[in-house]
Structures are given as structure tokens and as C-alpha cells.
Write a protein that binds this DNA or RNA. Structure first.
Lengths: 228, 228
DNA sequence: CCAATACTTCGATTATTGTCGAAGGATGAA
DNA sequence: TTCATCCTTCGACAATAATCGAAGTATTGG
């Protein structure tokens, strides 16, 4: 029996139910403590601690200590991306269509993907920003146009501030429920934050579901129209 | 202990070394027999058979029987995509940079990803086709322009024939070694096939490495220029 | 038809790994 | 300082799953 490729090692880390539950909980982009993650997984704190150590060593998580509390977040966008991909496979978007439950429909409509908006609403945002030429493809990158920067500033997003930070401003993130791109990067995160500030959308504290109010959805559709 | 999300089930399937070896072997896009896959994994035929049954039931593989032979291929692009993502994580592109071995460098340069060209050369192809407006983003899709169709026909790719088939013509596939898109879909596959016909590039029979001859690389660079 | 080849299924064995109770170390608040 | 809380580590146990020999079924070629 040959030694497996490294993908076996990474996949095996995700392939344990307790660890998968914890990773899924972290898809919201929040960092959670060992105790919180133990609860998410439904195991004792000592078991959770052991699992988290493995995920850390495997490069999937990033720990941060604050006094007696130790917080874990996903290590990177890439981890989130792979988890999204696995969700797509698990949902049978590969080639068999599974029955969709109510929660699934909500997640498909709008959900948090590592702090930015994903799902139908997420891809609508991206498509509209492209269509209105606020974003454009520049060969290998997505860049914010001048018109886009002005638009964002009018929407009270501090573009200069975002540009000063280390995080990339715009990134494409392939949305596995929609099979198209949604906007990641600090701008994507800023948009979601703004939708919350305006009470257009509300993040479910327990899941990744993002719920748009009727008023918020109307405002969103007005501001981010797409030809569909 | 809570029951795990479905991603645990899918990931666990990939997380076994024997199964991971088989999936990796199938990334070339070829379909292999049970015996061949047993050899790839370094297990007996009966063990391989058992594993393949699980991968089939899990929706990751698609079997096809031909007389006494049973061939397995990856179920879809999506499966290939997730495997690529895991490779990126395993390579530490997440946040830790692993030492790159000789084989890694070759795979990064040019490799087969489910029958189309990936790696540096793959993203170059995509970027150039976009830059030359042979391909363009149409909101959610990549479409071949008229100019692009003409270009492809001049390159002796039967666009009408491809359009008649069920497979999508153009698809973006996120390239994990390059972190940008490369061209998937039937057009992507046709391009790789053509490069082989012209002896510009040669597929390694044992691995996914695609090697461009000096002459081929020169011709490729000439036909698919990018501003880099 | 028979022999060879390809694959499937069964069952026993073994190794691995998740789990939790117990114990201990670190931190913060009273 | 003491106590409560958070987390880590250790060790024992139990469950799971990969593995292969054996046996059986299906297909093909001579």
C-alpha cells in the first residue's frame, strides 16, 4: 500500500465529523474559542482541544490567544474555498441533485462565506458590479474602477482605508451553490458589513444564513440590478 | 457527539491514502480500470474494488463497463476542482509555503486538469484569450466571441462540432497553483488536444505533467501573448 | 467448451483513531 | 491569595475501517 498523496492527509482532517462541524462553524469568518467549538461539535472540551491541535498543525486553522481564551479561525480564504467546494460535492451539485431542505434554500439564497456575502445575493452583487463597470477583470485580477471607488464611497465604504490595509481589496471567490463568482476580499467584507449597518440584511448568530428584509432586498435589487 | 455535516462524509472518502492515490491518478481525465487503479494505489484488486465502490456511491466517480473491463473516471469537473483545491492546501499555498520539489515545479508549469491545460501555461492561455477578446466574461459566463470562434477555427478546432455536443464550451476553472482561472470545458480540452497534435506539448503517460518542447513553447507564447 | 482474465463479495484480522475521565497548568476576577 | 474558568495532556477503552485470502461470477479468446 503506497503512502498517500498529501491530499489524503488534509482531507482526513476534514473527514472527521467533530472536526467538520468545527470547520463549518468557522465558515462565518468569526473566530471561536475552544469551548464554543466543543459545543459546536458536541464533544467535550478535551476532545475539541485535541482536534483543534490537529487542525492547527495541518494548517487549516489559525490560533490566537487572549488571556485565558484561545480563539481559532480558519487559516485562510483557501481553506474556506475548499470547504465550499466540498459542500458543493456533498450537496450533489457534482452530478446528482439531492433534495433541497429549507435550510439549504436559505443558504443558497444568501449566506456568509468567510465574512463576505455568498449565494444568490452574493453572485448578484458581483455580477452587477461588473455589469455597471464598478469592477472589471484585469487579466488575472479583479480591480475596482474609479467609478466603482466613487460608488463605494457614496455607499459609505472607506476605500482608502481598505486600500491601506494588507488584505487584498477584491478577490473572486467561486460560489458553489451558484457555480459563479461572488466578491471576496476586504471590499466584499465591507459590503456585507454595510448591508448589516443599513439593516438590509441580518446574519443569523447560529448559522451562516443571511436574511434580507423585504425592504433590504428591494433596496439591494435597486442598487445592484442585473439583467436576468 | 453530533453527526457530522455531509462534508465529513465526502472528505473522509478522499482522506484514505489508497483512495486519494486513485483519485489523483484520475485527475488526468482518463478513465482507468479496477486493475490499473489497484496498481496506482498499491493495493490488491479486491481492496481497490471495495474502495471504488465507495467512491462511486459517494458520487465522486463514474463507472463504465466494457465487457470484462470496468472503467472509472471522475464524476465531474466539480470533483476535479475540489481535488485541485485540496492540492493547493496540501502544498501549503494556504499560508505556509512548502519546499517545492522538481515534480511540483513541472506540475505548476503545465499539467492536465481533467483533460484541459492547467498551471502557468493554462492560465496564460486563458488570460491571453481574454486579453485578445477571443473570450469574454458575460456576467456569469465565459463566452467565445465571434473573433474567438474564427481564431479557433483557424487553429483547426471544430467549434461547430463542439457547440453541437452537450458539454459546455467554455468554463472557468480556478487554478490552484496559479490562483487564477484557466480554461475548462470542451474548448479547453480541444486546445490541449491541438497542442498535442502539433507536438507543441506532450502529456506524460504516468503523471499529469505536460511538457512543452522549446519550439512548442515558443509557438505557444507567440500565439498566446500576455502582458506580464 | 475450457482456461484465462477481470472483478465482486465475504469474513477474519489488525491498526488506527476518536472519546472521555482524570490531572495539571495558565489566567483573571474577587 | 483563593477560587473559578479555560485549556492541555495523558492514558485506557471501544469502535471503525482498511486489508487480504478465499471463493464466486462474468466475459473473452483459443
Amino acid at each position: 500500500m503506497k503512502e498517500g498523496p498529501d491530499i489524503a492527509r488534509v482531507a482526513a482532517l476534514i473527514g472527521d465529523p467533530a472536526r467538520a462541524n468545527m470547520l463549518t462553524a468557522l465558515m462565518s469568518g468569526k473566530a471561536l474559542t475552544v469551548s464554543e467549538l466543543a459545543e459546536e461539535a458536541g464533544v467535550t472540551i478535551q476532545t475539541a482541544s485535541s482536534h483543534l491541535s490537529k487542525l492547527d498543525e495541518g494548517g487549516l486553522l489559525r490560533p490566537r490567544k487572549q488571556g485565558r481564551h484561545k480563539y481559532f479561525g480558519l487559516a485562510s480564504d483557501d481553506v474556506a474555498h475548499v470547504l465550499e467546494g466540498l459542500m458543493g460535492l456533498a450537496a450533489g451539485s457534482g452530478h446528482l441533485r439531492k433534495r433541497i431542505g429549507p435550510r439549504d434554500a436559505e443558504l443558497r439564497q444568501a449566506r456568509v462565506c468567510y465574512n463576505h456575502l455568498a449565494g444568490d445575493k452574493g453572485t448578484q452583487l458581483f455580477d452587477s458590479l461588473i455589469a455597471q463597470e464598478y469592477l472589471r477583470h484585469d487579466g488575472e485580477h479583479i480591480v475596482l474602477t474609479k467609478a466603482g471607488a466613487a460608488f463605494a464611497e457614496r455607499f459609505e465604504i472607506d476605500i482608502d482605508g481598505l486600500r491601506k490595509a494588507r488584505a487584498p481589496l477584491c478577490r473572486e471567490c467561486l460560489d458553489w451553490s451558484e457555480r459563479r463568482s461572488h466578491l471576496a476580499g476586504s471590499l466584499g467584507r465591507a459590503f456585507l458589513g454595510r448591508f448589516e449597518e443599513l439593516s438590509w440584511a441580518k446574519r443569523d448568530q447560529k448559522t451562516r444564513v443571511v436574511t434580507f428584509s423585504a425592504k433590504g432586498a428591494k433596496a439591494f435589487d435597486g442598487m445592484f440590478p442585473v439583467s436576468r
